[in-house]
Design a protein around this nucleic acid. Sequence first.
DNA 1: TATTGTTATACTCTATAACTATA
DNA 2: TATAGTTATAGAGTATAACAATA
Lengths: 155, 155
Amino acid sequence: MKVQTNPEPVELGSLGEMLGFTVRLAQIRLFEAFYADFKDLGIGPGEASTLLVIHQNPGIRQGVLAAALKIKRSNMAKMIGSLNRRGLIERSTPSSDKRTIRLHLSTSGKALARRIGPRMGRHDERISKIFSASEMRSVTRLLKRVAFQSLPETL
Amino acid sequence: MKVQTNPEPVELGSLGEMLGFTVRLAQIRLFEAFYADFKDLGIGPGEASTLLVIHQNPGIRQGVLAAALKIKRSNMAKMIGSLNRRGLIERSTPSSDKRTIRLHLSTSGKALARRIGPRMGRHDERISKIFSASEMRSVTRLLKRVAFQSLPETL
DNA sequence: TATTGTTATACTCTATAACTATA
DNA sequence: TATAGTTATAGAGTATAACAATA
């Protein structure tokens, strides 16, 4: 693959066909697109996903949420703390297991989640306009395979 | 999409089919795989790509390199400084344009690049074993479209 | 005036380890 | 002993703005 950064072409060699490299390039573009579409709501992609998942799983445990989003527990604690300070979520510890924390959206958190949901849908639609419906299904299916299927042994 | 984090299932809703989310999940997995395969070489993915591209484009200008890898000039300056302090690359300013810096690998930088190249190839092969050859071509082609094709207007 | 690279700075994301409280 | 969450800390990666040297 050759990138034409006029007037000086750059030879990327096989790097340009490698999954790690192409995923990173796509990721950069997708972050740009996300921030452009969510600027006014004042939240990042991690926060948006977190709020949506709590909205769809009221009372979810913090650690379960972290595992589902592949965010480390320690980092999730920080994010949940921040969302809590902003009045978007509420925490409660059930008497059945006082180590755990169950998460719910506050009234304003629910209001925000109801804005995020459709926005996220339109955001994803905007991006997927560069694909046919079957291409879109392909790319998400293949990427989920990378995320979840076990890889062969390390080198 | 539902993620089974036994014993508590998590409903991700449409989030699980969205490109931004699936790319992020894949990215996390790919970083893990990269660090596992390159631990002994003491370099990260950005540094590995940078060394390979300088190796294939001797004398490349720093800004052109940054643009090709989609790394901001200011951040590239930091990375190049680090690689230079480690004795891997050499910088020279041509008399024709004294603002610019042309990059070359040092002897030890070349030796390292000659180890990185094949390692990167085997690393990518290991990951792509979860795909057929045509699936691999599909996913990289579709991701490059995300990276380079212009997206529709923002919302 | 515009371009190239540098510096300073900050914010997000990620990772590890040590800690507490509960089980 | 093991688990859930917290805190502290550190390292990447990314972003912006102000700056010097040069064109």
